[in-house]
């Protein structure tokens, strides 16, 4: 008997700005790109802490967390985010978007960040990056 209520799994992504940096043009564009790719985006907005992101990711059962950084704080903030997720025993992939120099991209990936998207990344790359980290 066919089931009336089954819907295909939706990818749920928590998007947030971690720290004081208020540049939100990029993250708002990314939110729309992911929505238009059929995903559910839980947008936390500005000035989030690692604790507030962990709490939201847990309650929302996020498949991925996307953080946007434009203030050169990525080498401090990204590891702090990963540590907070570890502490909460949440195995949710983290994607960083924003201004990250090539050398730092390597550092972030080694640290455990799942993907890094630079400024001006095409919509298709953004969507593919999220799908890839969620599947793997």
């Amino acid at each position: 008997m066919p089931d009336p209520s089954t819907s295909s799994p939706k990818i749920r992504v928590v998007l947030a700005k971690l720290g004081l940096d208020g540049h939100d043009r990029g993250i708002k564009v990314v939110a729309r790109i992911l929505r238009d790719a059929g995903m559910e985006v839980i947008y936390l907005g500005l000035r989030q802490t690692t604790a507030s992101i962990v709490a939201a990711a847990e309650q929302e059962d996020a498949d991925a967390i996307g953080l946007s950084m434009h203030n050169a704080g990525h080498l401090t903030l990204a590891p702090a985010m990963l540590a907070a997720l570890d502490e909460a025993e949440l195995d949710i992939p983290v994607i960083i978007g924003g201004i990250v120099p090539d050398d730092d991209v390597e550092v972030l990936l080694v640290t455990g960040v799942a993907a890094v998207l630079g400024p001006g990344a095409p919509a298709a790359d953004v969507v593919a990056a999220v799908r890839d980290v969620v599947v793997s």
Binding site: G19, L20, D21, R47, T49, N71, A72, G73, T76, A80
Partner: peptide, 22 residues
């Protein structure tokens, strides 16, 4: 720098990694 612009002192937890940067 960003903490100063946001009314935060350098020793605030918010300021980590941002002090004197921009």
């Amino acid at each position: 720098d960003m903490p100063t612009l946001m009314g935060r002192d350098s020793d605030s937890s918010w300021s980590l990694g941002e002090v004197g940067r921009a």
